[in-house]
């Protein structure tokens, strides 16, 4: 039965890709493109660009992570490690071995993809909090290696990178980076929307509802969970590579447990199972601490209160709840 669904899924997926481009839901993508294009008008200086670029990078990771958490219903407390591996792969290959940046980025993505694939089966057999624990452990192990093997990673003080060079062009400056991150975010969202809209996405959602139920109707649940895990890990690795080149340095903290928790928080804060919710979550939790600086010593108190308040009053996340409100308001 499993194989039946599988066989019919492949051609349907290909047709789905083409059709999805013309669907109304791609309207969201258009709106996002518009926002990304117009936002620079409101960015007064390099610092504002910096915040926007970091928000964009977080958003890329969260859109990927949301496929796993929001759609496949599997939690990961180790995604920062994939981000970190991508970043370190770029850093190490370009600075120590003289690789061209795009090659290093691709190598990092492949490395993380293979690693994620290798661990996915045993790890994703676990459920709920046990899965969270396993991904957490995996992430911690990776960040310890990055911290310890200083002969290649630079240790706790991190690794410095040169400017990103592609085919002889040096990509530097905030405007260039804003463009790179903006386009990458759009591509990621496009990929995610198509994946969600394909039979794969339907299978994933069935999985989130009830895994046994999905198995009963013949969905190869393990296959789809692995797929979501690997895709989200590779997206995180690519974002990590970009971050490393943009920031010019990478430290083990970026691959650590706290960063993983932050990423999950962003996804849930914006609204699970919504690609745009993940973006809203990533952007708000990147910008918020910058605004809260004004509270000085009370900064974390205010941040904690905002997080609690949002989740209590908007249980399904900031974006999803507001969207629902807007819809019901329009109907009445």
């Amino acid at each position: 039965m499993t194989s039946d669904v599988h066989a019919s899924a492949a051609p349907a997926r290909r047709g789905g890709l083409a059709r999805a481009l013309l669907r109304p839901r791609t309207g969201g993508l258009g709106l996002l493109a518009l926002v990304i294009a117009l936002l620079p008008l409101a960015l007064p200086n390099a610092y504002a660009y910096d915040v926007a670029i970091n928000a964009g990078l977080n958003a890329i990771v969260c859109v990927g992570l949301n496929l796993l958490i929001g759609y496949a219903g599997q939690i990961s407390l180790g995604h920062a490690a994939f981000f970190g591996l991508g970043a370190y792969a770029s850093g190490i290959l370009t600075t120590r071995y003289g690789w061209p940046a795009p090659g290093a980025l691709a190598a990092g993505a492949v490395l993380v993809g293979v690693l994620a694939f290798a661990v996915a089966r045993p790890v994703l057999r676990l459920k709920g909090h046990y899965l969270a624990m396993a991904t957490l452990g995996l992430g911690v192990i990776i960040s310890i290696v990055l911290n310890t093997e200083s002969w290649i990673t630079g240790g706790p003080d991190g690794l410095m990178l040169d400017d990103l060079t592609v085919l002889g062009w040096t990509l530097a400056g905030d405007h260039t980076w804003y463009g790179i991150v903006g386009v990458t975010l759009l591509l990621t969202v496009w990929l995610a929307l198509n994946l969600i809209d394909s039979p794969v996405g339907r299978a994933l959602r069935a999985l989130h509802g009830t895994e046994i139920g999905a198995q009963v109707v013949g969905v190869d649940t393990a296959h789809y969970k692995v797929l979501a895990f690997v895709v989200s890990a590779v997206i995180a690795a690519v974002a990590g590579s970009l971050f490393a080149h943009y920031a010019g340095m990478i430290t083990p903290g970026k691959a650590g447990f706290m960063k993983s928790v932050e990423l999950v928080t962003m996804v849930v804060f914006g609204g699970m199972a919504s690609t745009f919710g993940a973006i809203v979550g990533a952007v708000s939790l990147t910008v918020l601490p910058q605004l809260l600086v004004a509270f000085e010593d009370y900064e974390s108190i205010v941040l904690g209160l905002i997080m609690i308040g949002t989740m209590v009053f908007m249980r399904r996340g900031l974006f999803v709840t507001l969207l629902d409100l807007a819809k019901s308001w329009r109907r009445s």
């Binding site: 928080t265 009370y298 205010v302 941040l303 905002i306 609690i308």
Partner: peptide, 12 residues
Amino acid sequence: IITIGASILLRG
């Protein structure tokens, strides 16, 4: 996530 918020709040 609420408890994560609470941990940030309590540390603050």
